[in-house]
Amino acid sequence: MPEILEHARAQVLERGVGLDEAGVLAVLRLPDEHLPAALQLAHEVRMRWCGPEVEVEGIVSLKTGGCPEDCHFCSQSGLFTSPVRAVWLDIPALVEAARQTAATGATEFCVVAAVRGPDPRLMTQLREGVRAIRAEVDIQIAASLGMLTREQVDELVEIGVHRYNHNLETARSHFPKVVTTHSWEERWETLRMVRDSGMEVCCGGILGLGETIEQRAEFAAQLGELAPHEVPLNFLNPRPGTPLGDQPVVDAKDALRAIAAFRLALPRTILRYAGGREITLGDLGTRDGLLGGVNAVIVGNYLTTLGRPAGTDLALLSELSMPVKALSTAL
């Protein structure tokens, strides 16, 4: 077994301490013949420090398209020619989406908006939407509304949002090549306020944005410093009309190496399959990732791209004897 995996077995598996940036880089550089061993170790780490349960989540867009930011991977930016129109979802449709999500066995429902940050209209819509969902659906509610002020963080806590998603997207050193209308530091400040408020922090990113292997390791280490409750791991699904529309898809083995490396960097964190796994990994690779450190999935479609049918993922979890996490009895 390679030295880095021996080291990870002693440090991560036995003590629950994640790899540092150099250790993550060593895993990302492992040759193909050692990939199965890395995935196996990552799976053992996941089972030891997180347990066998898999958290299932559905997401819905409250406000789609027309975003003023220039995130180069995103078809919801109003600055690009991608064919996504600005649309608002009404409250009954939001409640129905939550009901359908709960029917899959999901415990988490995330309300997302394509904005720099929420304005008063959006906060009002979210408040009313959360109230309506809580009245009719037994599910935890998360939100992803961009960058927040202290007052908005406090309001989200008040209305009962249990987890907030705000992705750093990529390594700090690479971020200016992906987004120019706001900074990595601005995102970090929102995440710090969310963490300090007591809400759970959900923060991940997208692999395949043109970053180097070294920057992937840097990103994993920065997430380790933040210590989020959950890390959604996306793989770029290039969108027509965006600056990264012609970017090649991440190689499947590189994607699996990254899954193992991120698990070894974040042994106690929910590591969630998110966008792009369908085109990057396909059915077989999805299985490999679930046996290589992943312990959460988004079921159904994403914001502007198609996902796998919820039943397909749930059947795979059953086949792998991975129980779906039950809703907290405190709700």
Rank of each mutant, 00 (worst) to 15 (best):
R9T: 06
A10K: 15
V17T: 15
G18E: 09
V24N: 10
L25Y: 06
L28C: 10
L28A: 12
R29Y: 10
P31V: 09
D32H: 08
L35R: 05
P36Q: 11
A37Y: 06
A38S: 09
H43V: 05
V45F: 00
M47S: 13
W49D: 13
E55W: 04
E55P: 08
S61C: 09
K63E: 03
K63H: 13
T64W: 03
E69V: 01
C71G: 11
C71V: 09
G78R: 12
T81Y: 05
S82T: 03
A86C: 12
A86Q: 13
V87Y: 04
V87C: 05
V87D: 05
L94M: 14
A98Q: 03
R99N: 10
T101C: 15
G105D: 09
G105P: 07
C110M: 07
V111N: 05
G117C: 05
D119Y: 02
D119R: 00
P120S: 00
R121Y: 01
E128F: 11
A132Q: 11
I133Q: 15
A135N: 12
L148Y: 00
T149A: 02
R150K: 08
E151S: 09
I159N: 02
V161N: 09
H166N: 06
N167D: 01
E169F: 00
E169H: 10
R172A: 06
R172G: 00
R172F: 14
P176W: 14
K177F: 11
S183M: 03
R192F: 13
M193H: 14
G198D: 14
M199D: 12
M199E: 15
V201R: 03
G210L: 01
G210V: 08
G210R: 11
E211T: 09
Q215L: 15
R216N: 13
A217V: 09
F219G: 07
F219M: 05
Q222G: 08
Q222D: 04
L223Y: 00
H229R: 04
E230L: 05
E230P: 03
V231Y: 05
L233N: 07
L233K: 14
F235M: 10
F235I: 08
G241A: 15
D246V: 07
P248C: 13
D251Q: 02
A252R: 00
L256K: 06
L264E: 01
A265H: 00
R277V: 04
L281V: 04
L281C: 09
D283C: 03
R287I: 02
D288I: 01
G289I: 07
G293M: 08
G293A: 08
V294P: 15
N295W: 04
A296M: 12
N301C: 11
N301I: 02
Y302K: 05
L303D: 14
L303I: 05
T304F: 14
P309T: 00
T312S: 11
A315W: 13
S318D: 11
E319Q: 02
E319G: 00
L320V: 06
S321I: 01
V324E: 10
A326Q: 02
T329V: 13
T329P: 08
L331A: 13
